[in-house]
């Protein structure tokens, strides 16, 4: 176990200690401890209902929007407790961006979708700067070439894969430090999935990326670290190669060999 003191010494971006999540009476996440590194892709895998998405939503406090949800324990980003009373979730979410399972572009133009975050956070001083931010974000989202001629077209008119890349561009436009992805490819076809996976690999250079996936192949393809969740417990966490080749826990082995899940 790494102690809290040396968290800052290593490359740790997010540190979770004894995290418990309750939905009403249901104990959804039990005693989760994990260190997520900067400039790394970390994958959360596990059977559905195992709590991997729930834990992901704790990292940017999206669970706050659900009335019956209660979180205890300690999650720190750069050493700062994000559940501290002084923390404004609005500021936190600007720092920790999120991409959802189903592409959810706003019913606005492509440009306005991407500009939405920079506008509400006041990241630009004028139109030219905003244009710059939008272009940069769309390039980083690997969709610039496809949409540069129709920035004013509605975002909902794009194909599923394009929509998801637009949502990723939208998320990176606010210059986050961490990017959370909740099964970002589950609604996409294989070609779009490949494009998004490629994108995730590029994003690793600037961000700490956490991705929830139900596909072990995807986890193996895109991530450096993998965490296996089962029934609300973090069963095993380590180098992706190691998890997939020589798991320590029998449950992990059962899952990756297809016996449970």
């Amino acid at each position: 176990m790494t102690s809290e003191n040396n968290v800052t010494d290593t490359n740790v971006k997010i540190a979770a200690r004894d995290v418990q999540v309750y939905y009403g009476d249901n104990h959804a996440i039990k005693d989760v401890n994990v260190d997520i590194e900067d400039k790394t892709v970390t994958a959360f895998i596990g059977p559905s209902g195992c709590g991997k998405s729930t834990f992901l939503r704790c990292i940017n406090r999206m669970n706050d929007t659900i009335d019956v949800c209660r979180v205890t324990g300690d999650i720190r980003i750069d050493g700062e407790d994000i559940y501290d009373r002084a923390v404004d979730p609005v500021q936190l979410r600007a720092k920790v961006g999120m991409v959802f399972q189903k592409p959810n572009p706003f019913p606005k133009s492509i440009y306005d979708n991407v500009a939405y975050g920079p506008r509400i956070h006041g990241l630009s001083r004028n139109k030219a700067e905003l244009d710059d931010i939008v272009e940069r974000a769309l390039r980083r989202g690997a969709i610039w070439d496809e949409v540069k001629d129709r920035l004013q077209a509605p975002g909902t008119g794009l194909s599923g894969g394009q929509q998801q890349r637009l949502c990723i561009a939208r998320a990176v436009a606010t210059e986050p430090e961490v990017l959370l992805m909740d099964e970002p490819c589950s609604a996409l076809d294989p070609i779009a999935t490949a494009q998004v996976e490629e994108l995730i690999d590029e994003l690793r250079q600037n961000y700490s990326v956490v991705i929830v996936t139900h596909s072990m192949q995807q986890a193996a393809r895109v991530s450096q670290k993998t965490a296996f969740f089962h029934l609300g417990n973090l069963v095993e966490f380590g180098e992706t190669d190691k998890i997939f080749t020589s798991p320590e826990d029998p449950r992990t082995e059962s899952y990756i060999t297809g016996r449970i899940g």
Binding site: M62, K108, I120, T174
Partner: peptide
């Protein structure tokens, strides 16, 4: 209006009123 749009907005760090005015109401 689907919850996913609200989530998208909250996920970008919008406040609730920003979400309502700029995402929910236009939708």
């Amino acid at each position: 209006v689907p919850q996913s749009l609200r989530d998208g907005s909250f996920g970008l760090g919008a406040t609730q009123s920003e979400t309502v005015r700029q995402v929910v109401l236009p939708a």
